[in-house]
Write a protein that binds this DNA or RNA. Structure first.
Lengths: 231, 231
DNA sequence: TTGACCCTCAAACGGTCGTTTGAAGGCTGC
DNA sequence: GCAGCCTTCAAACGACCGTTTGAGGGTCAA
């Protein structure tokens, strides 16, 4: 209707396929796979109802492609390897801060983290792809940091549980946001609040980790924590 | 078909209305509000399609009633007030243990915790009821414990953040179970594992809390923690 | 100019959903 | 026995869903 389509594909800027991917990402993230309708997606993308089936086969195909796109975006953010020269507590702080920002920041391409959080609660089948491409390396990175903090003598299952405790604190703020804002209407998730939250979780976790350290590591960690708190 | 219904309502044991509530609880918990179908619920309850509309008005009315029933069950479990004579760290341990068991235990009336976890991610409107009846008092109970541990000089927002860190660790195991079992196929959630998990979260959190204590409280807590770990 | 191919379009298809309908059976008080 | 009420039943209704169809305009090489 509005668009006469007499121009070459690259004219308007986004081809129909790309607009569908973008619109689908937001709508899938907001409503979940089942509750999102192809009519909504096509309408927001300014495309015809049949466009999804033409470009992606079916709704599930569109979802899979959106999901792979989200995974590739998430992978781009994993540039944390450059931090490997830093001391482990500082790497933990950055890891938590980046993860929280990734989960909570209401920035422009924020829908892919929502999408992933949805997939956690209600797997649709592409979950295994997600785990392999994004979650497992991300979680492994955290485990490496925790292991470096705890020292080499702490068994792997303890390291894993500690890493889970840290991830859980972060994810909770995302998954349970509807509850949290009702419990505390003052709660906001701007950049400053996210940084404060990251600082809290880092302090809480670094201190909590000392419970599982051999005594020698505890003293090193306490000194590092005191330095960090005074910075 | 199977049931001739020539007997009085109390004969078989459960009236149609009760069977609907029970079946709906499980199905809503497993599939969510949208994905659950009234045909599924009626079929499992051995009732006619029209039974839901007759007894509850519509699907939403059934959901609300199921939810209130779940809330009342959860309230029954809140008998933790008898613990108020115990020292705060022990109260925290019991709180975490009970909460984890409530979330993870695959026992018989387990669907109401699943149902609530679902409502957190995808509020349907009865969420506000839930918050008032169950979550707020539960969370307030935790805040009281944390406040008792941290001492009276620690500001309320710090207490609240610490309580959130603790709840987050617990809820994470429930919400992200699909991920966790894929990351670690050995993971199980039997009674013993839940107890071990509760012990881990308690130790991690009690230690993490010391980061926010005045020095006087830290020494008291360290002694209590050492006692608890040697028990 | 022609024909093959790509893409878009309005319209409809088959299926499933929540809900409604109206008949029918059982029970209770008169 | 009978009227009134409660409950259950099979069947259908209308709405919405994902998907398919077939026509038609567009581009581009031959």
């Amino acid at each position: 209707m509005i668009k006469t389509n007499t121009s070459p594909p690259s004219d308007i800027g986004q081809a129909t396929r790309d607009r569908l991917l973008s619109a689908a990402g937001q709508i899938f993230a907001d409503h979940g796979f089942q509750n999102a309708t192809v009519r909504d997606i096509c309408s927001r993308a300014g495309a015809n109802i049949a466009a999804i089936n033409y470009h992606f086969g079916d709704k599930q195909g569109l979802y899979s492609e959106v999901f792979l796109y989200a995974c590739s975006l998430a992978a781009d953010n994993d540039t944390a390897k450059a931090d490997s020269g830093l001391p482990a507590p500082e790497r933990l702080r950055r890891h938590i801060s980046a993860f929280l920002a990734h989960l909570l920041d209401e920035g422009r391409p924020a829908w892919h983290s929502k999408l992933m959080a949805r997939e956690l609660v209600e797997p649709t089948g592409v979950l295994d792809d997600l785990i392999g491409h994004s979650i497992r390396p991300h979680f492994q990175g955290l485990i490496d940091i925790v292991s470096a903090i705890l020292g080499p003598t702490v068994p792997a299952d303890v390291v894993q549980r500690c890493a889970t405790s840290i991830v859980g604190q972060c994810v909770f703020f995302h998954n349970s946001r509807p509850i949290l804002v009702r419990l505390d209407p003052e709660l906001r998730f701007g950049h400053d609040q996210i940084e404060a939250l990251a600082a809290h979780i880092t302090t809480f976790s670094l201190t909590g980790l000392t419970a599982f350290m051999p005594a020698r590591e505890v003293r090193k960690s306490a000194a590092a924590l005191k330095r960090a708190n005074h910075a």
